[in-house]
Design a protein around this nucleic acid. Sequence first.
DNA 1: CTCAGTGCAAACCGTTTGCAGAACG
DNA 2: CGTTCTGCAAACGGTTTGCACTGAG
Lengths: 171, 171
Amino acid sequence: MDVTTSRPQPPTAPFVRLFGRYLREQGLPVTQQRQAVAEVVFGSDEHLSVDDIEGRLRAEGDRIGKATIYRTLDLLVRSRLVAEHDFGEGFKRYEHRLSRQPEHEHLICTECGAVHEFKSREVQEIKREMSERFGFRTVRHKLEMYGLCRSCQEAGVEPEEDGLTCPIETI
Amino acid sequence: MDVTTSRPQPPTAPFVRLFGRYLREQGLPVTQQRQAVAEVVFGSDEHLSVDDIEGRLRAEGDRIGKATIYRTLDLLVRSRLVAEHDFGEGFKRYEHRLSRQPEHEHLICTECGAVHEFKSREVQEIKREMSERFGFRTVRHKLEMYGLCRSCQEAGVEPEEDGLTCPIETI
DNA sequence: CTCAGTGCAAACCGTTTGCAGAACG
DNA sequence: CGTTCTGCAAACGGTTTGCACTGAG
């Protein structure tokens, strides 16, 4: 593969090297499998499932066992270079935290599965309030909005209703 | 068991009847197992796991199969009388939505597992913004703050650190 | 060389499903 | 009485783990 040809994303090599540095700091071997998994994760701006990662590795000719992928993702998450997400699909997704806003929230379209990221200053406010009011020290948080993205609404999809005919008051 | 003795919580019977009404509306049988599960869920203000529910049923002499509990919880969630949560523990938790604020967010202590509820007006603001800026129509959301509750901090617990020595900038 | 990593397959574990017998309406 | 439910046990599926072999340092 010609590294000099144009790439859609910034080069991933420096990020992979950063992961290598983390491994060395921890006294762990920098293996080619670990580098290959890191390359895939840092080379995409999507929220990848383990199957996605396995597929992309295979597409590049790498045949890496799922167990190794899981073990490597564990290291990537521990290094704080990668974030793990559970969007309630029954499996986890992974996204790297480099070269874009490391802290962001998610908009998830329940129709087409599209994931959009956004920043929210309100969350900082909430953290402060929780500290003041309850003495709670927030270490991490999760803010996800589930609904319909613009294009699914324009395609005529409606959010499905259910529940008791006499609804519980909401808000 | 004497129903006339004092109870810690408001009586659950009306809530169970509400569930019965939902079942009838849907043309589904109101079985004693379904009522027993509903009784347990409406009778607690905690976030119960399936094992919790099974245990409480057994404590009252009811022996109901896990499959039935799962199937009944599915109905309770569909009726909108009960909310399902995944706090990343590897299993789900359930909480009824009656006689307290039906919409609220969660504070989860990663040390002792305590769950505290709070209301956030900021979330409404975020919904509005997402609609304006991205045309996203929010149907539901998830806001969870993970960290240390006051008592765990007072007990001297510190949030554990990890990651690369040169940290990625955070907020 | 030695210790940790890898790959495979089996184990795990919460949840779901198929099916014979029991209940609801 | 027919239709749906229940309970059991087996199946499921994402993830984890045990172990013999390979590879990094």
